[in-house]
Design a protein around this nucleic acid. Structure first.
Lengths: 159, 159
DNA sequence: AAAGTTTATTTATAGATATGCAAAAATGTA
DNA sequence: TACATTTTTGCATATCTATAAATAAACTTT
């Protein structure tokens, strides 16, 4: 419950659902959830997540998730290029043989479809609501395996 | 050539076409174009334009324009101009103090938002339907003024 | 044109964020 | 396990950004 992946997910969730205007503010929210870190680390996390700071309609500053263009690095032979992908992925967390994937509102169906389409060896099935996907993990497969299989499908997830 | 509107347009153009990573950097570019201002003013300009600072694919920080309008630089011979990449704009016509802007189906709201966002001195308000925007022109402003103010926001309009 | 009002700008500084470096933790390898 | 390598983190601080207060400039109104 205290690793980096969980923390990054928590950051995404907080930013997706609240108006956060500074790192110190976000730091307090994270602390309230049991995460213990410094502003320096948070700065690096936000950089990794490509979170942006902009101005809200009311004139205050807010952090926003990189909903729009997300880039994926594609290596084919020695050539490296970047491909823009669109997707509503927000976070993923696990509980036993179930993974809960949160997406931006309305995106769950689309993301679940992408996952199903690939017939991953670690995924038994998915059920999608509006912003949540329940993913049933196949018997004997680890969470790491699931992450490894999902990351190429859901860019921005590999962290 | 030294008023605020021109400066804001210059800022948009620079940010749209170069990788600017800090206000001081942007300040230098503006200075090179003959704009004389301080970092404090620039900070307020960026706030007004709702420019965001985020992390680029290469890990550096960059300023980006509010997601909606996307600009690109078009070079034809020696002439360089900017054009909005994806835009629903179709046509504009005038009747007294009203401008009627037609867009592609579904784009009216987005385009109207872009217009509102800039708080143009010649625009009193906009109302958007699905493919039509009614724009109320401020008392005493000419159609040419409105066009002049809109064109940087809706490139391709002059063509 | 003078007086009042709003908007824009600068200066100075407070506040927020990024980062070099060293240490610690995690991961890989023999 | 011991050792090497990579990743993560905190500390301290440099860098960057926002804003209060004062002033100037641009408009309005009388």
């Amino acid at each position: 419950m205290k690793n980096k992946l969980n923390r990054l997910n928590a950051i995404r969730l907080i930013i997706a659902n609240e108006r956060i205007g500074s790192q110190d503010e976000l730091l307090k929210r994270l602390y309230a959830q049991g995460f213990d870190l410094t502003q320096a680390t948070l700065s690096r996390d936000l950089k990794q997540l490509k979170v942006a700071k902009t101005t809200a309609v009311d004139g205050s500053y807010v952090y926003i998730l990189p909903s729009n263009p997300l880039y994926k690095r594609i290596t084919k032979g020695k050539a490296v290029r970047e491909q823009q992908v669109r997707n509503g992925f927000v976070s993923i967390s696990f509980s036993a043989n179930i993974a809960v994937i949160k997406t931006r509102p309305g995106y769950a169906g689309g993301v679940a479809y992408d996952i199903d389409e690939h017939e991953l060896p670690s995924v038994l099935a998915t059920v999608a609501g509006d912003d949540t996907i329940l993913l049933v993990i196949k018997e004997g497969c680890s969470h790491e395996e699931v992450l490894a299989h999902l990351s190429p499908i859901i860019p921005g997830m590999e962290m």
